[in-house]
């Protein structure tokens, strides 16, 4: 049995982009956001730009971690309440959810692809300054050394 939530006062400045303020109980919530963020040095934009289908980033499945073994959960609330004082929120945006009440299942997915487009060269080093290290066996990066640390040198006899 879910508990009762008691909130003294709620003050929200803005709710935008299919966000929700939900007062009451819910069974299932699905939230999804897709966005392309484009920064241009010269702010010139065509009206029809932006196609999610052109980028496989927006189709890549999310790896959802699963519990290693099934969990049997029992909750005893002892007739308690959830009491909260005043709540003050500046903004809720991009299909976010603020709920006062109980929920059973919530699932949300966000995909944001960011572009930065410059026309002129930037000050600073001109060569490549970011690198991606590629491992050989496991994963990407410096995992190998952590898994197989180099042997300490033998003490001299």
């Amino acid at each position: 049995m879910a508990r009762i939530s008691i909130v003294e006062d709620v003050h929200i400045n803005g709710i935008s982009s299919s966000s929700t303020l939900h007062i009451g109980d819910h069974v299932r919530t699905e939230l999804r956001t897709q966005a392309m963020a484009v920064q241009r040095e010269i702010p010139y934009f065509y009206g029809n730009e932006g196609n999610f289908e052109a980028f496989p980033f927006f189709y890549r499945p999310f790896p959802i971690p699963q519990p290693p073994e099934p969990v049997e959960m029992t909750v005893n609330n002892w007739g308690s309440f959830i009491r909260v004082g005043p709540v003050r929120i500046l903004g809720i945006s991009s299909s976010a959810l603020f709920q006062i009440g109980s929920n059973v299942t919530s699932q949300s997915e966000t995909r944001i692809k960011h572009f930065r487009q410059s026309v002129t060269d930037k000050p600073g080093p001109q060569q490549q300054t970011t690198f991606v290290k590629l491992g050989k066996d496991i994963g990407v990066g410096d995992f190998e050394d952590a898994l197989h640390p180099p042997r300490p040198p033998r003490p001299p006899r």
């Binding site: 966000s19 939230l31 929120i89 903004g91 991009s94």
Partner: peptide
Amino acid sequence: SVRIIGVASSSIFLIGDTKNITLSSMF
């Protein structure tokens, strides 16, 4: 009292009980 600047990008601020929450984000 609760003071929040922003809840964004399919995040959840919940005052209540829940059973499962799965939040994923790609940037």
